[in-house]
Design a protein around this nucleic acid. Structure first.
Length: 740
DNA sequence: AAAGTACGGGG
DNA sequence: GTGTACGTACTTT
């Protein structure tokens, strides 16, 4: 039998990989693909021999042969032993035994390769397939796959995804975390019909839920808080009532769970809730996935395809894991032995070298205040472009063969003989993103426009991470020296651009890492385009002319009104597009009420063509402010609009100061809500100055009509949000603010 | 005044 | 099962 469709799910079962295909009619096909994953052992024969003896005593179906592979850092072909397990479910166990200290004593010189990948990854790598690939499958009557013809490629930009039956699982009445509120009803939506299930009849609830699953057989359970709350609750109820819960499509299997964790990344703590992964069906929690949060399902699918990580797993992992998997796939294709964990440590650096290399991006202080007709030039994807252009990769930095090819400022050098893995990975990746951006512009169908945008945004995250990962000590294909080389080149490029611009008589208003704000009277758009062209040529990486601002405002720092702040500004391009950085409307912890007020004000100001017109709008801005103030006074504001969302950086009990966040977190913890670092909470300020601390603020989920809000406090936030837009003009320091 | 806490960036 | 910088703004003590 021949089946044409998309690879929906892949996981290991006894005797092979379970492969689910969904065809264009939405039919689901449960197939088996025999698969014998292999890992490799390298090292001195005297050390390898006892390991092989150990393996032979296991009496598991396997094949041990001699092979060769390329060692990643040296690029040399080395002899290795290949261990192929005939049954994939033995793989993880056998690798773990081989790695354990009893079998592989310290100092044995043994290295294991290709051993810490998941089985779906190994399967996809070896068979050159990928999640959601469109293909033609030849199947025998028992459902075993004979051949697979790939009708798709990870580099396609016009791919489609299978038709999915989706069940939406959430709590009635909003998306607040269920355990941060009082009791609510469970809501299940499928085929456009929503049913509410009462929690007081547990047996009836499970029974109705099971019947919905049976009747509709959804491919995707899309939940809000399914991971930390709904699925655990449903599973506990089912267990208590001894009812089966038919979440998996694979018979006689349990739901795979992964422990919750909190980790630190990019300067902040992130919480990943416990995950519930289904077999033959997807469960995706909208609130437990960075990628879905940033790029919708479309970006998640793009990442799953490229990384060869199944959709459900990809939803819960970081973009860093995703791009590492893409890099491993490329290494695998090239016959490179994938190193298990990093062995290389940072090379020694002298004190004066440290001073130079530890600098990151270059930042100037902006010229304060209001400016007209300023142009912005941005180096596009500066860091990835630099890595690709200068061949920056962990195995090319400080190679033994090219000491002459120096990186600016710092003592590192780069290989000229071997193209690095990271640049080879980045080239098609950069090109694919550029293609999506182009398609997004030219697409006429709004649905595809949105799709292209989500996909390019997912790729953007991949590139941001590729750079960040070079500086991470445990990255598989990263090296801190490579990170330093990238920022060194980037500083050089920005300086070079600044020199060109100033030599041509432009005034530099601001410059930061990869962007310049410049002006010169009489300059046309075509002149700016030509200037960008000249800089691109001189710098060897592309810089783009973003546009000319009607006006851009760099408000003064609140701690020192004489200086500006690098990342706090607002401006309007000539096409009317508004750009905000660092101000209230852009921040995640601004209450919706304040955000709405400031956004409305900026909307009005964006009409202004020049400074005079801008200043003339002051009365209108004041009118908006007063209208919002009236609403506060008349209490015509919902708690939801006043809610402040904050991310916890520690467990509630670890807070030392009684900030509002700490007070509310402790209050919630006292009600039995488990809060881990990285989770967020929402609260309303009820009485900021109350001597009774617990009266100062109240969690949004537990506030009711008996509580009021602190109108005075919100009024001051409102006034502040307005004042940012009318600071003391820089040439009129010492005068009163334009707003009282 | 000092220390604690949280935010953004990237596009 | 993977990104620990850095500056600003604001609050508490």
């Amino acid at each position: 039998m021949k089946i044409t469709g998309w690879i929906f799910d892949v996981y290991a079962v006894d005797g092979g990989m379970r492969v689910w295909i969904i065809d264009a009619q939405g039919r689901k096909h449960r197939l088996l693909d025999p698969f014998s994953p292999a890992f490799y052992i390298g090292g001195p024969p005297a050390s390898v021999r006892p390991l092989l003896t150990f393996l032979s005593r296991l009496n598991l179906p396997m094949e041990v042969t001699r092979a060769v592979g390329i060692e990643f850092y040296s690029g040399k072909t080395i002899p290795v032993t290949r261990v192929k397990l005939f049954n994939p479910i033995h793989f993880t166990k056998v690798v773990r035994w081989c790695a354990s200290a009893a079998v592989k004593p310290e100092g044995s010189g043994i290295s294991l390769y290709n051993c810490d990948l998941s089985l779906p990854q190994l399967y996809f790598f070896e068979r050159k397939r990928f999640p959601l690939a469109f293909c033609e499958v030849e199947v025998d009557p028992s459902g075993t796959i004979q051949t697979v013809g790939l009708l798709d490629s990870i580099w396609r930009t016009d791919y489609t995804t299978p038709p999915l039956t989706t069940l939406i699982l959430r709590m009635e009445g909003g998306s607040l975390r269920p355990d941060h509120t009082g009791p609510r009803r469970l809501e299940v939506t499928i085929d456009g019909r929503t049913s509410c299930l009462e929690a007081d009849d547990e047996a009836g609830l499970i029974d109705r839920f099971d019947r919905l699953l049976l009747r509709h057989d959804p491919d995707l359970i899309l939940s809000e808080w399914g991971d930390p709350y709904l699925l655990p609750q449903l599973m506990a109820m089912a267990k208590k009532k001894r009812f089966p819960l038919l979440l998996n499509r694979e018979p006689d299997t349990g739901v795979v769970t992964r422990r919750e964790r909190s980790y630190f990344t990019y300067g902040q703590v992130v919480h990943q809730a416990q995950a519930h992964l289904l077999l033959g069906r997807w469960h995706i929690d909208l609130h437990n996935s960075f990628l879905v949060d940033q790029t919708e399902l479309e970006g998640l699918f793009e990442f799953a395809r490229l990384s060869r990580i199944p959709v459900q797993q990809m939803a819960r992992t970081t973009t860093g894991t995703g791009i590492t998997s893409m890099q491993m796939a490329l290494a695998f294709e090239d016959g490179i032995l994938i190193p298990w964990r990093k062995q290389e440590s940072e090379a020694f650096k002298s004190a004066d070298q440290l001073l130079l290399t530890d600098k990151g991006g270059l930042t100037y202080a902006p010229k304060l205040g209001f400016h007209e007709a300023v142009a912005e030039l941005d180096f596009a994807s500066m860091y990835p472009a630099t890595m690709a252009r200068y061949n920056i990769s962990p195995e090319t930095i400080n190679c033994p063969c090219c000491p002459h090819n120096l990186v600016p400022e710092i003592g590192h050098h780069l290989c000229t003989k071997r193209r690095g893995l990271i640049p080879r990975f980045l080239e098609p990746f950069l090109a694919k993103r550029a293609e999506y951006k182009r398609l997004k512009k030219t697409a006429t169908d709004p649905e595809w426009k949105g799709r292209y945008d989500a996909r390019q945004s997912a790729l953007k995250w991949g590139m941001v991470t590729t750079f960040g990962y070079q500086g991470y000590k445990n990255a598989r294909f990263g090296k801190i020296e490579a990170h330093e080389a990238i920022t060194a080149y980037a500083r050089e490029k920005l300086l070079q651009a600044k020199e060109i611009v100033e030599a041509e008589g432009f005034e530099m208003i601001h410059a930061i890492v990869d962007s310049l704000w410049i002006k010169k009277s009489g300059t046309t758009e075509a002149d700016y385009e030509a200037l960008a062209e000249r800089i691109s040529k001189a710098c060897e990486i592309p810089i783009a002319f973003e546009g000319v601002y009607r006006w851009v405002l760099f408000p003064p720092s609140k701690s020192d009104p004489e200086i500006g702040v690098p990342n706090r500004y607002l401006g309007v391009f000539q096409n009317g597009e508004v750009k905000l950085r660092g101000i209230e409307a852009r921040r995640g912890d601004t209450p919706p009420f304040i955000r709405a007020a400031q956004t409305e004000m900026i909307e009005i100001l964006s009409q202004a063509k020049n400074r005079e017109a801008y200043e003339a709008l002051l009365p209108e801005i004041e009118a908006i402010r007063e209208a919002y103030r009236e609403r506060l006074k008349a209490r015509r504001v919902s708690f939801w609009e006043l809610a402040i969302a904050k991310t916890l950086s520690k467990s509630p009990s670890e807070y030392q100061k009684d900030s509002l966040t700490a007070i509310v977190a402790k209050e919630l913890a006292g009600r039995g809500v488990r809060l881990s670092p990285g989770q967020s909470i929402s609260y309303v300020i009820t009485d900021a100055k109350s001597r009774v601390k617990s009266d100062r603020a109240r969690a949004l989920g537990f506030i009711d009509g008996s509580w009021g809000f602190d109108a005075e406090k919100y009024e001051s936030l409102l006034i502040q949000a307005a004042e940012v837009l009318f600071p003391d003009p820089p040439d009129r320091f010492g005068q009163k603010n334009l707003l009282p």
